[in-house]
Design a protein around this nucleic acid. Sequence first.
DNA 1: GACAGTTTATGGACCGGTCCAAAGAAGGGC
DNA 2: GCCCTTCTTTGGACCGGTCCATAAACTGTC
Lengths: 337, 337
Amino acid sequence: MSAPTIRDVAERAGVSKSLVSLVLRGSEQVRPEKRQAVLAAVEELGYRPNAAARSLSERRTRSVGVLLNDLRNPWFVELLDGLGSRLHENGLHMMLADGRLNRHLGEDLTRIFTELRVDGLIAVGTLPGSEELLAAATHIPTVVAGAVEPVLPHVDVVAGDDSYGAALATEHLIDLGHRRIAHIAGQGVAGELRRTSFERVMHAHGLTDLATVEQGDHTEEGGYRGMVRLLTAPQRPTAVFAFNDIACVGALSAAEELGLQVPRDLSLVGYDNTYLARLRHLWLTTVDNGSHDIGRRAAQLLVHRMKDPRRAAETVLSEPRLEVRGTTGPPPVTGTP
Amino acid sequence: MSAPTIRDVAERAGVSKSLVSLVLRGSEQVRPEKRQAVLAAVEELGYRPNAAARSLSERRTRSVGVLLNDLRNPWFVELLDGLGSRLHENGLHMMLADGRLNRHLGEDLTRIFTELRVDGLIAVGTLPGSEELLAAATHIPTVVAGAVEPVLPHVDVVAGDDSYGAALATEHLIDLGHRRIAHIAGQGVAGELRRTSFERVMHAHGLTDLATVEQGDHTEEGGYRGMVRLLTAPQRPTAVFAFNDIACVGALSAAEELGLQVPRDLSLVGYDNTYLARLRHLWLTTVDNGSHDIGRRAAQLLVHRMKDPRRAAETVLSEPRLEVRGTTGPPPVTGTP
DNA sequence: GACAGTTTATGGACCGGTCCAAAGAAGGGC
DNA sequence: GCCCTTCTTTGGACCGGTCCATAAACTGTC
């Protein structure tokens, strides 16, 4: 009644279990007729190897744990796509664990992965409470993808080049003729990098005095509120660069609620090129940081690190690209002082 | 150098490995001082049980496989949330596999789960090519969540009540005074159910002749095109009920591009109450089918079925709720014939 | 036909846990 | 002090694979 084992297959094929094991692992050292017999027996019995037994014996699981923050963020999903395909090319499986989905359950994801004995770990985005992750990273090959935060001795990092991306966005606005430009900032290291880069570019163009920064967060609400503050201030900006697409959508709503038309009265740039930005009805100009590519590179780095765990940590920055859509245009003629 | 095993712990604590096993599984039959000794040894060595060894021996994995179509769809993620929390309460882990992320890799997810020997299977949404799933469902306790499609002898189904939800949407529009109402239909059984229900309600109000159905799909593009066709036809509807939120956003774009203002000139209703619908800038009136709840119930059914695999299959329909937001209102006065 | 060399097949130890029958220790009654 | 019962603890078989040293079966040579 219970699932057939390799011994059942062996008996059926009239060979030893070792031979079955050889065949199943694709050895060339097996006489063709025996191979056929084994494969036939496998087929007849509907045999499926037991992954637990295999990994116990092989002392590896051929799977990597992926820790992430929030599956609701489409950006992560895009990254997962690239990650998964490259891992698969290397015969590895991906086990997902969403911190946000599980955190409130008091489940410790890193611990689960430790017990599962994953062969590698990928941390996607900034993970809160990562002491456990740090501990795990000393035993398990680990790569951080999409965040620059925790830099450990043997942990590689792949991320978008936030400074460059923010510069792209800011320069796009300046090129269009905007001078009074605001930034709705995000949190964490990425938020910091983008904000700093925005300020640097503004400064380089002699626009320091016309640059404003509003603190927001990664949510629509944050973008909305930031925008309301910007637009109710005495000197309105003619363009706003938001930390990410979601915040940008919030900003867009605020602008329209206050009677401004985008991009006629106000230009907006988002970040991430999520599918939100691609919705016709939003059609945000945004910065594409190549999440798919980041995912693939992260997988590649992990594969390298699994082969040689002591290699020096590498930091790879993926080059972002500006995606111009419908929310940016020249400043209103009357708007320039 | 390699991870400590239960025998290392036993040696350190000066007891047998069996005793360690007892302590670790929380047995009451252990004298307190021995328990302390074991726990101390565990702590000192940083011992973590090996999940593979445990499941090999216990002949179960305490994990369930979750098959889904597309993580990009926020609806699924919401459902996962409910699913995960209830599974966790029952000491089960969730292993995610996204069909869309993996399908093109030629990886057979059901097969992976079979090799992993998951204790249960949850299929979320309509899965293409499910012969493998059907085969697995005969061995492994299985529940289908969020789709009514594959009804097998021992497979439970939890889904939103699409007929009821579509009726809610349609009646809402009728109550507002609309008469000429269109539906942008989706594919699959859910699409069918919503369309039929729309037609039934229209018929019940004597509006059969004023009901139009445009075939769309689950994408923004589909909604957009459907809407363009509707609005370029001789008799424009004053209200449109779209298969889901994404299609609704597409429809919204089309309407505005053609110069109609929503909801002044045209009312729109979506379906799913995804976070898209909640974006201030879209603020769609939509039908909430309680995905979180569906997830929880699916988990509950699975737990029951795992205890008693031969119980009769159950079908649970979750009751949807209308969420009125900004895209519906009374028909334009001049619009009524 | 015996021998060496090569290819192919096998038995058994091992991975790290759980489980169970049985041994050992402690407590109670007479 | 001895026997019986109950509570703790233990050794060893087992889960289902992999791996390796060794055995068996061929091949070819002289």
